[in-house]
Simulated scan of single mutants.
Amino acid sequence: MGKIEALCISTRRGIQKEAVPAARFIVGWGIEGDAHGGDWHRQVSLLSADKIANFRKCGAHVGFGAFGENMVVSGFDFAKMPVGTLLRSGEVLLEMTQIGKECHTHCAIYHSVGDCIMPREGVFARVLQGGILQTGDELVMEERKEPRPYRAAVVTLSDKGCRGQRRDESGPLIASELEKRGFEVVEKLLLPDDEEQIKVQLCRLSDQRQVDIIITTGGTGFAPSDITPEATLAVADRQVPGVAEAIRAESLKKTKRAMYSRAVSVLRKKTLIVNLPGSPKACRECMDVFMDTVFHPLELLRYGARDCAEQ
């Protein structure tokens, strides 16, 4: 159980938030009057009160809202709670959607003291049920009535696609196939064949969004710009070679050119990352190889090992 120590909003982005005695939470939007509200996954930001207290002990004089947080709560270490956690306060129900964030432009606090805790300690949520909250209200974790669906991200790698010279057909196809199988596709990205950008997004999707599976399409061949496998291996904790091997073996039955695919499959933390080729037809065929069996390993990643010996 936690306690809301402060509620903060700002009327425009790029400035510190100011504490308010009460705030109205709007479903699918965020906090009424706050500039960061919108139809996206980062509608409300939360920060643990003890993290701010520790920051102050280092000599930084910061008030509530200084880090851009909407809610300061005591009693929880949000950064250690998994994405998908439900938080209830009265009528308001929030679902955590992201841990930490990228800091593209350092805030005033960082420039002042050389550090900011929001990128590593702050979390984000979306509003599932709305209502009015006040400072001092209790916040509790709520148990889910049904299991959370597996969450996926689709990443298309194509220089021409980013320049508008080629229509991305593979990414939408993969997303559609995932949704048919019951996945919630939380992000669809179109990126250039740039290794650093790919690594940054794979890390973000795995670490901050905590998706169960990332499927990439494109960049697995012999062209100088085909660096998807290298970027994927660079962020991997462990390899899962069997997925890529099975895809190549099945694809060889259709074309001998499949032997030249350099696609890999790996794990980063609790996320499975699978490279697919760029062709829409090949993507569908490759997904048919492993998607029917993928739920068991994803369950192990999410919930841990159980006795899975066949009876």
Rank of each mutant, 00 (worst) to 15 (best):
G2S: 04
S10I: 01
S10H: 04
G14A: 05
V20N: 01
A22F: 10
A22R: 15
A23H: 00
V27C: 11
G30M: 11
G30T: 02
I31S: 00
W40H: 14
V44W: 10
L46V: 10
L47E: 00
A49W: 06
K51M: 13
I52H: 01
A53T: 10
N54K: 15
G59R: 10
G59D: 00
V62Q: 06
G63F: 03
G63A: 09
G63Q: 12
G75R: 10
D77F: 09
D77M: 10
A79P: 02
G84R: 05
L86C: 08
L87A: 03
R88K: 14
R88W: 02
R88E: 07
G90T: 03
V92Y: 01
L93Q: 04
M96F: 02
Q98F: 03
I99G: 02
K101I: 07
K101Q: 09
E102L: 15
C103K: 10
T105M: 14
T105R: 15
A108G: 06
I109M: 11
S112E: 14
S112A: 15
D115I: 12
D115M: 14
E121S: 15
I132G: 04
I132Q: 10
R148I: 13
Y150C: 02
R151P: 01
A152S: 03
D159A: 10
R163N: 02
D168G: 09
E169D: 13
P172S: 05
E179H: 07
F183W: 04
V185M: 05
K188R: 15
L189M: 13
Q197P: 08
K199A: 07
S206C: 14
Q208T: 00
R209D: 00
R209Q: 06
V211A: 09
I215V: 14
T217P: 06
T217F: 10
T217V: 08
G218A: 06
G218M: 09
T220R: 08
P224R: 07
S225Q: 11
A234L: 05
A234Q: 05
Q239I: 12
V243Y: 05
A244Q: 11
A246V: 06
A249Y: 04
S251V: 06
L252N: 03
A263C: 04
V264Y: 09
L267H: 04
L267C: 13
K269Q: 13
T271V: 13
T271F: 02
S279E: 04
C283G: 02
M291F: 08
D292M: 12
E299K: 15
C308I: 11
A309T: 11
